[in-house]
Design a protein around this nucleic acid. Structure first.
Lengths: 318, 318
DNA sequence: CTGAAAGCGCTAACAC
DNA sequence: GTGTTAGCGCTTTCAG
């Protein structure tokens, strides 16, 4: 292992000089600077992470609690994580994957394994909020729990997306519309995004005086039966907002069929489905990036908005 | 922050005693042991990870290089990662998420951020093999590159799965069968699993004297056109091995249609599709677990098989 | 502009 | 069975 002492020797300077060359925290003559940098390169030196974090009391690691239970929107989770990792690395931070439970958070925080926490898969009334409050460590939630404001949250604005879809369907002339959404168990858990989408959808239906109903959909092949059932019972439905990535490929064909269907899902998923009226992009990777920027901001001591919601945009299908 | 010194004070012992109580590396009287443990609990002490790893020269962290490029089998990737994280935590190891490139590996290793590496998404002729060899750090690949034997690899036995499927289709009486597989770009990259599946399939077809062809399939809605095309040109195909999780929901209905279809995918995906003859489970989470056990074994100085392939099993659909 | 040296919190000899 | 202490490799005062 090459240490800072080896570099100092090779460059003929003291170890503090090497340290300061790397951190840029004091002015160094051009000459010594070059000698040190050459030595670093030649010896392929990279500072020992633990030694550095012991001395500097910071790890350059962010803990990420991701929902690894497969089933719910794997695609979206994956893209968010991609965004997080990319943005973190860009700022020389690493990501430590934490398990879903409370203990994972607490342990990582108390052992000073991480500088900050990023928490995904937030439910409306999430039990982890209390834990986080005790922790005295910057954290950002990806999702929007009830009664936020005391924590930092980043998410897509599902409520606005619900309204946007209704407005579009109304503009297209529909007066009987439906939201086919998350599986029943997700709604039952009051997963934050599902709750908010329903709220936006129903509020807008009310405001526009149109008849709107909400239907949970299983995210696998069973979706077909459910969708068929609903459409048979309510043949008047002519406009649809569809938010269930897993079910979409199974049922896309039977939804479209004289109806206007707006899909709410990542862009690539929407593109792979034919016959959609329009789609509203869930900018999953951007969410990850935004959340990471928020934690990095907190770490840098910047003021942050407590709630940051990415606005929906409507994509017309050509 | 509570340190080991605080605990020692509270318990009225020296810091080394506290350390030894935690590690169990020397015998401690029942009495002091209890006093120390009580102090640890009361103070909610957990040792500073960096301090520990600086002194002990090991981090209890495993670096995981996962393919975050969405598109290819998100589901499978997710489950493998789940298995890795679960097994690692069970042995008090954490997982650091590394970026896909070479630099990610090198950096983590040289900065002693991790004790070992786990590398996913291995291609037949993977450029990272060289990098790994230079690194002087235990590592396990999830996948099977060409000319393994000098590295450690864990994967599902796709070649055997190909053979198994052919045997089953032959037993069902088919003499004209087809493998609908990964997208063309995956095959072009010579992603290890795709290569091996094709080999097993074609070898077995030869051995059994049946007519077998291989067809790449896009993993989105475009799959329908491709599948329709193939089946129209070769109506004699009556038995199918289908290995493309993304495409399956789009095309399941038109494949089955008097034909026997064996799907090769995670169990939950297979279950959500109706009409399959049988399925062969891709035990993704088990792969993650097995790979993690292998690295942990290496870290523990145990002998390991260089190549470990999880055998396929056929599930009959009830 | 540069060095010397005091820690950071822990592990593991080396004492007894 | 327990305590003392020398590092682990780095950052950051304090001195010049």
């Amino acid at each position: 292992m090459t240490t800072i002492a080896d570099v100092a020797n090779a460059a003929g300077v003291s170890i503090s000089t090497v340290s300061y060359v790397m951190s840029g925290k004091r002015t160094i003559s051009q000459d010594t600077k070059e000698r040190v940098e050459r030595a670093i390169a030649e010896l392929r030196y990279s500072p020992h992470a633990s030694a550095r974090s012991l001395a500097s009391r910071s790890t350059s690691v962010i803990g990420l609690q991701a929902p690894l239970r497969s089933g719910v929107d794997v695609h979206v989770v994956m893209e968010i994580v991609t965004g997080v990792v990319r943005e973190a690395r860009e700022h020389a931070y690493d990501i430590l994957l934490l398990t879903g439970d409370d203990a994972g958070l607490t342990l990582a925080a108390r052992a000073s394994r991480v500088d900050a926490l990023l928490v995904m898969d937030v439910e409306s009334d999430d039990p982890r909020l209390g834990t986080l409050a005790q922790l005295d460590m910057p954290s950002v939630l990806i999702g929007l729990p009830a009664g936020a404001e005391s924590v930092y949250c980043v998410d897509f604005d599902f409520e606005a997306a619900g309204r946007l879809a209704v407005e579009r369907l109304v503009a297209l002339g529909h007066s009987r519309i439906a939201l086919f959404g998350a599986p029943a168990e997700v709604l039952a858990r009051h997963t934050s995004y599902a709750d908010r989408l329903v709220r936006g959808f129903l509020t807008a239906c009310d405001a526009h005086g149109v008849d709107g109903t909400v239907h949970p959909v299983p995210s696998n092949a069973e979706a077909t039966a459910v969708v068929d059932g609903v459409l048979a019972e309510a043949p008047g439905i002519t406009g649809i907002l569809f938010h269930n990535e897993g079910a979409l490929p199974h049922v896309a064909a039977r939804l479209v069929d004289g109806r206007d269907v707006i899909a709410l899902c990542p862009a690539d998923v929407a593109q792979s489905v034919a016959g959609l009226a329009d789609s509203i992009d869930v900018p999953a990777e951007d969410i990850g990036v935004a959340a990471t920027r928020a934690v990095l901001g907190l770490l840098g001591g910047e003021e942050q908005a407590h709630v940051q919601l990415l606005p929906p945009k409507l994509n017309s299908q050509a």
